[in-house]
Design a protein around this nucleic acid. Structure first.
Lengths: 231, 231
DNA sequence: TTCTTGTCACCTAGGTGTTAATAT
DNA sequence: ATATTAACACCTAGGTGACAAGAA
């Protein structure tokens, strides 16, 4: 079984409609996809990998600016369907760089996919995940048991397990559309600390619940509870 | 077979008497021990590791300052034997973090031991290599074939190969003794660029052979030739 | 008008020798 | 006197969103 790390933070983003930046050079995800793994055979070899599947066959677009003036400008519910999805991108896969490794190794600490990068460059040759901007994606996590038998290909089906966490869904964008997403990224990503305007010591250590509803759920759970995956 | 990378740089340091800093927290080596590997079975698993053996049973000490005034102050030949070696440190081993991996993986690029750190803290619990300051050491590189046979312990002897490059010998120190070593480290280690006083563009790209005899050998070979190991 | 690209200041994270203070 | 330690300024290396300019 698999538990998603930082579930509270993922939930907070998901509630606003998570957006992930894609660039030509490749951009990391934030939050980073991280999991705790249980129940492996400690002595067996496993490959861990991720891929990304379209949530729907739609293309999205920004809401016209004149339609969203006022308090709820840039709200997550302001996505409009812009038509059918663009042609699918090459369905690349990202192997965790420690693969293959023993079950004991994978289970003894959190597995982090922080080397995974997203790009919108269809001709990318850095092995990054290629996505269409303005489309929605569902990250998937796969565990492959490395079968030592000679005819292991025959058992591919049963040596394979997929885990999906719906709270990690996101829209790929080249620039943030929802200003609340931007603010939550700035508030929670250490690398964006330069854009915070509050006292850096104020958050999250001294954060008073309710003061900033934007990130209340995350602030409430300092030891985030993980969530079970839909298999 | 194994080739030492950056052999010209190692030679230049060795000629002066290489020194490596040891600290309580652990310090990387510079130059970094890096090798190219040939002739592995591409499909077999190997563990790669390093250890450090005393070159002799001597303890060294700094030359009294009043004895070395003038041009040859701090020359490498100014080490004095201070007596018998201190009690041996725990003979730790550093496994390359990618171990175990297939021969094909090890051979397809330079193997770098840049995560290896040296410490003088006998109680270190970070898994660093523990050395006595003011003692001389010989780094050793070991390749272990992971034998798939059940009774693999019996074949430990033949599944094991050791490579020694004498030009990587060094004295462990808590502060540099030979000023020429300091200058060569500053000139060749990118992380010490802040201590260079010459135009940063001047070296090594525009370095004129003979102008700075200190690092002539390194500057002469822009594509350093590797050296075979003594097995 | 909407979306994308490239540059930038500002961060995190951590590897350098220097230096002054301390230990032996 | 020699040897070690800890704090420090200055780097490398690379991850942020902002912004202005360009593309569609």
């Amino acid at each position: 079984s698999v538990q998603l790390e930082m579930k509270a933070l993922w939930d907070e983003f998901n509630q606003l409609g998570t957006e992930m930046i894609v660039t030509k050079a490749g951009r990391r995800m934030f939050p980073t996809f991280q999991v705790k793994i249980f129940g492996m055979d400690p002595m067996a070899d496993y490959m861990l990998l991720m891929d990304f599947v379209p949530v729907d066959d739609k293309r999205y677009r920004q809401v016209p600016r004149r339609a969203v003036l006022g308090q709820y400008a840039f709200h997550s519910s302001s996505w409009l369907v812009a038509g059918k999805a663009d042609p699918a991108t090459p369905g690349r896969v990202h192997y965790h760089p420690d693969s293959p490794a023993k079950g004991a190794q994978w289970m003894k600490q959190i597995v982090s996919f922080d080397k995974l990068k997203l790009t919108n460059n269809l001709l990318d040759d850095n092995g990054h995940i290629i996505l269409n901007s303005m489309h929605r994606y569902q990250p998937r996590f796969h565990v492959v048991y490395v079968d030592p038998r000679k005819d292991s290909e025959k058992y591919a089906e049963e040596n394979f397990k997929t885990f999906v966490f719906e709270e990690t869904r996101f829209t790929a964008v080249t620039a943030y559309q929802n200003h609340r997403i931007t603010q939550l990224k700035i508030a929670s990503n250490p690398f964006a600390k330069g854009f915070r305007d509050c006292d850096p010591e104020d958050w999250p250590r001294n954060h008073r619940p309710g003061a900033l509803p934007l990130m209340s759920a995350f602030a409430r759970s300092r030891n985030p509870v993980s969530s079970p995956a839909h298999q």
